[in-house]
Simulated assay, not measured.
Amino acid sequence: MSTVLAYAASKANGALEPFEYKLGPIGPEEVDITVESCGICHSDLSMLDDAWGITRFPLVPGHEVIGKISRIGDQVSHFSVGDRVGLGWHAGYCMTCNQCLGGHHNLCSNAESTIVGRHGGFADTVRAHSTSVAKLPDALNAKIAGPLLCGGITVFNPLVQFGISPTDNVGVIGIGGLGHLAIKFARAWGCHVTAFTSEGAKEQEALDFGAHDTVNSRKPGAIKDATGRFDLLLSTVNVKLDWNSYISLLKPRGRLHMLGAVTDPLDLNLIPMMFGQLSVSSSPVGSPATIRKMLEFAARHDVAPVTEHYPMNKVNDAIQHLRSGKARYRIVLDR
């Protein structure tokens, strides 16, 4: 058995401290990844705080892993030792349910999450089922690619799932860790992209990311002036907004798609939705096939997250920086 050197929290809201654990014999379809870097996601904070009531301590967070395959199970044929790969939110799937067999592994009710009930990537090694691991295209910058494995696939998945056209008008609500990637992907997809932000200072940044125009949601009448413009609105915020105002911005058959983890109930007026045949939806990450497609698309169109970097032994400083709301825009831990 090999020893993994990691950083773990022993209680909710606790600091991350050096932690060791043993890896048993590798399964026939599993791979071990020597971690080179790992992004920090808001989901890591939620798990650290046990905000969802599913955390098991000690917790080793980290589900935006970039590294090299160091060991493979005897039934793994699509990877070789030394391959550079990525691992995201899921570390395994049941592979037998209708969702898995239909190619929707991310909807598998028995999927194994990388940091739920197991140890993640704030470590020197992480283990996962080989199906959940994606080879990194050579054209991607491995040093900053980690956030694509969660944040990137979260915003890319709706473009694929809903058949978004390059001629569609897409609005992105919130210009943060998810939002800046949503702008980049939607622009590269060919869409006309509008960024919604409540911070005037972020308007120019949104344009630099690829938005064609911006709407400052704090300006009186700014949202109303955009009525009926959008085929798709991607909400990346985790706070309650006047959702009916945003729904009024949709074209007939338009969609408001929720990517931020809003915990408050949505107060929606049904009648305008009914007569416009409008939809409100949400989705989690993406299937292994969609993750591979996203990585290839990002490599081809030079889509990359804006990142700040900390050495892994400064993980608590990095967590505090993320909590402060000052991160621009994704944080990556380097080993």
Rank of each mutant, 00 (worst) to 15 (best):
H309K: 08
A289Q: 09
P158E: 08
G152D: 07
T194L: 04
M1N: 10
V160P: 00
Y7C: 10
I144K: 14
W52C: 07
T236H: 01
P265D: 14
A134Q: 15
G254F: 03
H212Y: 08
M273W: 02
W189D: 00
T307P: 08
A206L: 07
A188H: 06
T3L: 14
N244S: 03
S109Y: 03
Q99C: 02
L5I: 07
V155P: 06
P305Y: 06
P284T: 15
M95Q: 14
K219P: 00
Q75C: 13
S281W: 05
Y7S: 07
S198V: 01
L5S: 15
R118V: 07
A327V: 04
G276R: 03
E308W: 04
S283Q: 13
M258K: 11
P288W: 09
V65E: 06
I183Q: 03
V35C: 12
G24L: 09
A226F: 00
Y246N: 03
V237H: 08
A139E: 15
W89L: 12
I173P: 00
A111M: 04
E20M: 06
I319E: 00
D264C: 01
V280K: 01
D208E: 10
S217L: 00
R323A: 01
G325N: 09
W89C: 15
A128Y: 06
K314W: 00
K293G: 04
F230Q: 10
K22G: 03
A226I: 01
S2L: 13
L101T: 13
Y329E: 02
L241V: 10
N13F: 12
S165C: 12
F122C: 07
D32F: 11
G86R: 07
V35N: 11
T96S: 11
P288C: 05
K293I: 00
D74G: 02
Q320D: 15
S287I: 03
A304L: 12
N244T: 06
M47S: 11
A111L: 10
V85N: 12
S245G: 15
A139M: 10
G24D: 14
T236K: 03
G260R: 12
V170S: 03
P305A: 04
G146N: 10
A128L: 12
S279N: 14
L181V: 02
G27K: 09
S248R: 07
D225L: 13
T263Y: 02
A91H: 04
G174T: 02
C108K: 05
D302W: 00
H301N: 15
Y310W: 15
A304T: 05
L16S: 04
M294Y: 08
M312N: 06
R292G: 14
A206I: 08
G151L: 05
M47F: 14
G174W: 05
F57C: 09
N216E: 09
H119N: 13
P61R: 03
G53R: 09
G151Y: 04
G286C: 12
L107N: 14
N316D: 08
L101C: 06
G325F: 11
T214F: 07
G276D: 00
S235E: 09
Q161E: 15
C41H: 02
N157G: 07
L59M: 13
L87I: 14
K314N: 14
G221Q: 02
L268A: 02
W89V: 14
M274H: 05
S165H: 11
L48A: 10
H180C: 07
S279H: 14
V193Y: 01
G27H: 09
V85L: 13
K326D: 06
F156G: 12
L45I: 15
M274P: 01
